[in-house]
Design a protein around this nucleic acid. Structure first.
Lengths: 197, 197
DNA sequence: TCGTGTTTAGACTCTCAGTCTAAACCGCGT
DNA sequence: ACGCGGTTTAGACTGAGAGTCTAAACACGA
C-alpha cells in the first residue's frame, strides 16, 4: 500500500458510508469510485484491493482513537478521572465516524488479519489504559484488580458494544449521554471500598 | 430456508472452522462442501446462499446462549449470583464453539441484517438480564442503575470482548478462569455499597 | 527537455456464487 | 409392485464483479 495522499484519504469516508449502508460485499469498487470521486484505476494504484481500503479506514480511526486516548491519559487529574476521560474519548471517536465504525465492526474479517488488528488495539488502547490502572492504584483513585489486561478488555468491550448498539440502530450516539451510564457500572467497581461516593 | 435436518446441521460447524481460519470470503462454497461432506447442490437445496449458512450458525449459537442464560436466570439464588451465572453461561457457550463465535463476530455483516440480529440478541440476552437487574434491586443483591438497558449492553460487551480476544489469539478460553476477572470489575460496581465483601 | 512518478479510461481475464438439469434415491400409501 | 412426493447429487453452465493490463496523458523537478 503506497502512502495515500491527503486529498484522497479525505474522500474515503464516503466509501465507509456505502459499506455501512449496503454492506461491504454489496458495494462494488465502481460504487466506491463513484461515491468518492476517486477513479477505480487510482484506487487500485494506491490499494491492493477493496479490503485494503477498509483496512486503511480502520488504521485511520484507530490512530485517531490512540491520539485522543493519549491526550486523556496525560491530563493532570486523578487516574479515575482520566479513565473516565478515556471512555468519553472512545465514545467521541465513534460518534464522530459512525459509518466508519459500523462498517469496520460489521466487517472485521475484511479489515485485515485479526492478530495485526488486535495488536493495533493493544497499542492504541490496552497499553495506555493498563498504565492508567497502575497509576490509579498508586494514587489511590482506583482499586487494584488481579488481572489488569482483562480489566482493560472489559472496559473496551463495554464501551464498544454500548456504542455499537446505538450505531446499528441508527440512533445518534451522544458521548455525554452514554458515558455516565457506562461509568457508573464500571467505575464504581474500580473505586476503593474505603472511599464510597 | 428449509428446515435443516439434524445430520446436516451437525456437520455445519466444520464450515465455521474454515470461515474462522481463512475468512468468509476466502472460503469457497466448494470448500464448505468438501469440509462438511455435504455436497454443494444439497447446501443450495437448504440454504439460499453462503451467507445463510453463516446466519444459520448464528441462530443456533444464539439459541444455545438463550437456553443457557434462561437456565442461569431461573436458579433459586440471589440475583447477583444468577447474574454471575449468566456471565459464566455466555463464556461457556463461546468456549464451546470458538470457531463459530470467531467466524460470526468477524463477519457480522454477512450474518444477516443487523437490526434482526440486534433483536435476536435482545431476546436471548438483554431482556432476561434486564429482568435480573430488576430483581436484584428488589432482593437487595444489586444496586439500581439509572439505565438498565445500557447496563445490560455493558455486561454483554465486557464478556464478548474479553472472550473474543482469547479466541482471536487462539488461546484456550476457560470460563472458570476468565469470569472472576470480569465479575470483580462489573459486579463490584453493581453491589450495594452497604454490603461490601 | 527528459525522466520519474502519478492519474485515468477502458477493455480484458478469471474466479466463484449461484442456477439449472436431469438423473437417481427414498419412503410411503395403494 | 407401482407411482408419487420430497430429497439428494453430479456436473455443466451463467453472470457479476474483483482485479489486471495497456497506453495515453499529466505534473513537476533536475
Amino acid at each position: 500500500m503506497r502512502r495515500v495522499p491527503a486529498q484522497i484519504a479525505a474522500r474515503l469516508p464516503a466509501a465507509a458510508e456505502l459499506f455501512a449502508d449496503r454492506g461491504f460485499e454489496n458495494t462494488k469498487v465502481d460504487d466506491v469510485a463513484a461515491a468518492t470521486g476517486v477513479p477505480k484505476a487510482t484506487l487500485y494504484y494506491y490499494f491492493a484491493g477493496k479490503e485494503e481500503i477498509l483496512a486503511f479506514l480502520l488504521q485511520e480511526t484507530l490512530q485517531q482513537m490512540a491520539d485522543e486516548v493519549a491526550i486523556a491519559v496525560q491530563a493532570p487529574d486523578s487516574a479515575a478521572a482520566r479513565l473516565a476521560a478515556v471512555v468519553r474519548a472512545q465514545l467521541r471517536v465513534m460518534a464522530d465516524q459512525p459509518s466508519v465504525c459500523r462498517a469496520l465492526i460489521e466487517n472485521l474479517g475484511h479489515a485485515g488479519r485479526i492478530p495485526e488488528l488486535a495488536s493495533s488495539v493493544t497499542e492504541a488502547y490496552y497499553t495506555p489504559v493498563q498504565q492508567l490502572l497502575d497509576e490509579g492504584v498508586r494514587d489511590g483513585s482506583l482499586r487494584a484488580t488481579e488481572d489488569p489486561s482483562t480489566t482493560a478488555m472489559v472496559l473496551f468491550g463495554a464501551v464498544t458494544m454500548s456504542a455499537l448498539s446505538y450505531l446499528a440502530a441508527g440512533r445518534p450516539l451522544s458521548p455525554e449521554g452514554l458515558s455516565p451510564a457506562i461509568l457508573t457500572v464500571v467505575l464504581d467497581g474500580l473505586r476503593p471500598t474505603d472511599s464510597p461516593p
